[in-house]
Amino acid sequence: MAISLRNLSVDYSLPIGTAHALRDVSLDIQKGEMLGLVGESGSGKSTVAFALMGLLANNARVTSGTATIEGRRFDLTRPNATAPLRGRGMAMIFQDPMLSLNPVFTIGTQLIEVLRRRSPASDRKTRMAQAEDALAKVKLGNPKQRMEQYPHELSGGMRQRVVIAMALLSEPALLIADEPTTALDVTVEAQIMREIIGLRDRIGCAVLLITHSLGLVTEHCDRIAVLYAGERLESGSVRDVQRQPGHPYTRMLFDCEVPIDRERHADAAQNRFTVIAGELPDPRRRPPGCIFNGRCDVSFEDCAKVVPGDYPVAGNAAHAARCLRLVTP
């Protein structure tokens, strides 16, 4: 069953004014598919993830948005709308594995806690066996011993596997992975991606892969959505978008991306898009017209006045972009 997100808008209240972090973002993910959500740092990717989970910061407000997951509709403007899905219908893998496990409880205790939620009726022994099994499935050696270990005894990659095991145990319909490899070594990146794909194939869930690496998207995803300053500028199958980007921003991203075969920086933070000239618009005051207008290399008069709609690219209904060029002969 497909997952859909419609018209998600999120505001953050700031000491002065309100930042509009997301405006009318919509996404669709088919069962068993992986959607790559890409965008620069600060474009609002994590905000999408946490709005879906209902775990936004206290100063955030969802002003519009509905999600359909497992055939049920959730009004995201209601606080905790998706709380019943956490650990059951939805699971999440986080950006910083070094910080995402509790340092004073064993791996086993934390995995079993997920099962308390997922299968309340089962007893401790069954849960222990299930947790060990999950650790083995995500290729963590010596699962029995790992259960007794504390997070500080494991490397970042191993800890990320533990979180993937948690996701596996919760058997979600939607798995959200928010930059799951950004904080890790490049050598570990491929392994972690393999485990995420293994999880998807095992459970058949939909995956929302959040990343700023187009390389990961072109390698692993079926579809791509491009986020810029809180707006989704383009979406389509990876193949279509790569072959013929409908939005100048997407084209610039593909032009800038470090080729996959080129060596990456050891410092993960530096594996960003090469800079595109210009600055992000002020999130407190959206400029009129196209959000990308200030940095666009093919803009024309109307771009400063008219907000573009979501237009099909090359007559393909499954590939759309928000650019006036698409409807201007």
Binding site: A83, G87, F94, S100, Q110, M166, S170
Partner: peptide, 24 residues
Amino acid sequence: LHVRTLRAYGVSEYRIVGLFALKL
């Protein structure tokens, strides 16, 4: 951040505050 992980996996707020966060 580890508290967010527990929340994401549906652990109740009472168990989070009274057990997982309390021990730390």
